[in-house]
Design a binder for these strands. Structure first.
Lengths: 104, 104
DNA sequence: ACTATAAATTGTCATATGGTTATATATGAA
DNA sequence: TTCATATATAACCATATGACAATTTATAGT
């Protein structure tokens, strides 16, 4: 991978909201509307972030009815698991019942 | 590390020029004036990049006379070596004699 | 076909970024 | 001290970015 593409990749990681999204996707796939609720930002903003994450193949999408579910897709990056490990735990992002589901 | 600081770290990596600098420092420490010549950008621009790289502890500096030599300092990051490995080879950045020195 | 809902796109705005030139600071040599 | 050189900082500018509201597109259900 050349500097240009690699920089694009890191630039995509260089945003607090996108890191939070990746943290959440570590736990489970999510549709846009779920992310909107959990993150407390507007739907278009989430969609833009997902587009960007998708453009560097950090996530992939799965359409199911009206919903588009996003999940991690780091297959391109040999060091992707290192990056994932470095992400903060998403527990605090989730509400009580979700957190319970994650941690049980 | 929280999302905020981690994003700052990746944002610092998210620039082509800074990645080129890190590639070069993989080979050996460099002073600012060397980087100016190799990279073909102005001295203030290099200094700004070095300040930013230093601010997230990706490089450290060593003053020697009038020169400030910068070298890698990824001690903070457990996955730093993974990131370094992903950097493109800096050979093409260097001129013939430098390349010879690096590769011999 | 009509309605409702999920997601994507567009337009706009404030701020951040990466480059430049000009200037200031720091160090070594004469 | 004076001069030369290496580096840092400041001021500026064009472009990129991340947020929002408004709109469009897509899909499911009635």
């Amino acid at each position: 991978m050349d500097s240009e593409k690699l920089a694009e990749f890191y630039k995509t990681l260089g945003d607090k909201t996108r890191l939070r999204i990746l943290s959440l996707l570590k736990v489970d796939e999510r549709c846009v509307c779920e992310l909107v609720e959990i993150l407390g930002i507007s739907q278009p903003t989430v969609s833009q972030h997902m587009r960007r994450l998708k453009s560097v193949h950090l996530v992939k999408e799965r359409r199911q009815g009206r919903w588009v579910y996003y999940s991690l897709d780091g297959s391109l990056y040999p060091f992707f698991h290192s990056i994932l490990e470095s992400l903060p735990n998403p527990k605090q992002e989730l509400n009580v019942s979700e957190r319970k589901m994650v941690c049980d």
